[in-house]
Design a protein around this nucleic acid. Structure first.
Length: 480
DNA sequence: CGCGTTTGACCCGCGC
DNA sequence: GCGCGGGTCAAACGCG
């Protein structure tokens, strides 16, 4: 019998015993002991280090991305076995050297195994903290309820609003999520993303005859039934002054229907930064005070996608490209576009949550808190503007922290400064990627959105919750 | 021929 | 009411 064949069979059997889960297509994280010392190593010292490094990178990539994806261990072992047969006729000296090197490799594998366990532990900790924080926020929001409170309906609305934001934030991941609402303007076919939540709700409230059969429609209808006398405005505007007439409500609804916008400043020679989406230009205008024309683009990755963006060069520094995003995608996005979309969506959602017509809202009283909450690890510069026609978050990813325009704008807006490198599209993408990876999970941003809704709904609650959230986020800085 | 871009016209909100 | 500016539409045009 061929000894090489024996080795392969033996390795396969041992591998199957040591890694029973490896026979399944899907493996869970705690089963991924790729470098377990229990595996009887038949590896020869001629196993080249490059392959080992590649395997380690695969493990790391697996953790970073899908966690549950398995590795092709059998192939690797088989290769090792095949290599081992080559050395069978080696001299005793060579064998001694081989065994020495084998010991070294085993030690290295042990070390990597320990590192593997450490990473699993970290992952579990992150997940546990995320769950705890989520529960904590929900508990705090619900504690705001008072059973005999005459504003019971309002609280119920808030309760519904927060989970809704949990669900809606970010780009849509299900293509057939919702049908577009029949808005008053025929061409306004906004997606169910959080950016349009308030707008949709407000519009839908006006168009009560436009019943919808989906979950959102049911929620809205239930709110209508609960608050037929106009308390519904409190859903769309936290701390909204009481409206005693439909006209007042219309004005408030109109104010909250303003679309939030996320603007990104980045240095780029290209006419448009690459964000992973497909865009079609539908207009160009000369903006006042800027010799450079402003281009209007519409997302063409799906029919009816409401996302639009404006691209314009900065008048002061024409190397700076200002890209403004508006709306949420109503279709799945490619990985390259997920980062930008989720970031802008979260930013806009946060902004809209804080842009209610309130005199003591979070954004107006402490915009830096919102900026810090929204972009806890953004290496760029976040500017929040409530005075613009649209509530706008500006992510400044240009290199010059001492940009004169910043100084000028800082008199109008609160800012959060960080140092940052050059603002090429690649760097922009990386910056947003880093930002979106805070806590490793996008749901964390969802929590922040919900937290903002809670904060803005009750100013008495603001200080404690802001401190808690910012401290949690601040302590959980990813070490990348 | 289909698709994307260009560009003038149009609509709408806002300020005076 | 009027003018201005921003945003969008849609026909014309260009390109592959």
């Amino acid at each position: 019998m061929n000894p090489a064949c024996d080795h392969r069979i033996l390795n396969s059997l041992e591998h199957a015993q040591a890694f029973p889960a490896a026979r399944d297509d899907k493996r869970v994280v705690n089963e991924m002991d790729f470098f377990s010392s229990k595996n009887p190593l038949k590896h020869t010292p001629r196993m080249d280090v490059k392959k080992e490094i590649t395997a380690r990178e695969e493990v790391a990539e697996d953790y970073k991305l899908t966690v549950n994806t398995g590795l092709n261990l059998l192939t690797t072992n088989t290769n090792f076995s095949e290599r081992s047969t080559v050395d069978d006729g080696a001299s005793p000296d060579v064998r001694k050297r081989i065994f020495r090197e084998l010991d070294v490799l085993r030690a290295e594998i042990d070390r990597m195994n320990a590192e593997n366990h450490r990473l699993k532990s970290m992952l579990n900790q992150v997940h546990n903290k995320y769950c705890a924080l989520q529960m904590h926020i929900f508990t705090l929001v619900q504690q705001q309820e008072s059973p005999e409170d005459e504003t019971k309906n309002t609280k119920m609305n808030e309760r519904l609003l927060v989970p809704k934001q949990f669900m809606d934030l970010g780009q849509a991941t299900i293509a057939d999520d919702d049908e577009p609402l029949p808005l008053s303007e025929g061409r306004s076919r906004d997606c169910p993303g959080s950016l349009q939540n308030v707008e949709e709700v407000a519009t839908d409230y006006e168009l009560q005859k436009n019943a919808k059969n989906d979950v959102r429609g049911d929620s809205i209808r239930s709110l209508r039934e609960d608050s037929p006398d106009g308390s519904f405005q409190e859903l769309i505007g936290n701390k909204v002054p009481e409206f005693h007439s439909s006209r007042d409500f219309d004005q408030a609804a109109e104010a909250t229907m303003r679309k939030a916008r996320v603007s990104v400043r980045a240095r780029s020679e290209a006419s448009m930064i690459s964000d992973g989406c497909q865009w079609r230009k539908y207009g160009q205008k000369m903006a006042k005070g800027n010799p450079c024309p402003r281009a209007y683009y519409r997302c063409t990755m799906a029919t009816g996608c409401p996302v639009r963006k404006q691209v314009q060069r900065c008048a002061e520094d024409r190397t700076i490209l200002i890209t403004s995003y508006e709306g949420n995608h109503n279709h799945p996005l490619p990985p390259a576009a997920m980062t930008m979309a989720s970031t802008t969506s979260a930013a806009a959602s946060m902004l809209l949550s804080g842009s209610m017509p309130s005199s003591d809202g979070l954004m107006e009283t402490n915009p830096s808190v919102l900026a810090r909450t929204l972009l806890p690890y953004s290496p760029g510069l976040a500017t929040i503007s409530a005075s613009a026609p649209f509530p706008t978050v500006t992510l400044d990813l240009t290199a010059t922290s001492a940009n004169p325009s910043h100084s000028e704008r800082s008199q109008q807006h609160s800012q959060l400064h960080h140092s940052f490198g050059s603002g090429t599209p690649q760097v922009l993408g990386q910056a947003l990627y880093n930002q979106s990876m805070f806590s490793g999970l996008q749901n964390s941003r969802d929590m922040m959105t919900a937290a903002t809704a809670a904060i803005t709904s009750d100013p008495n609650f603001t200080a404690a919750l802001v401190a808690a959230i910012t401290s949690i986020i601040g302590n959980g800085s990813p070490k990348q």
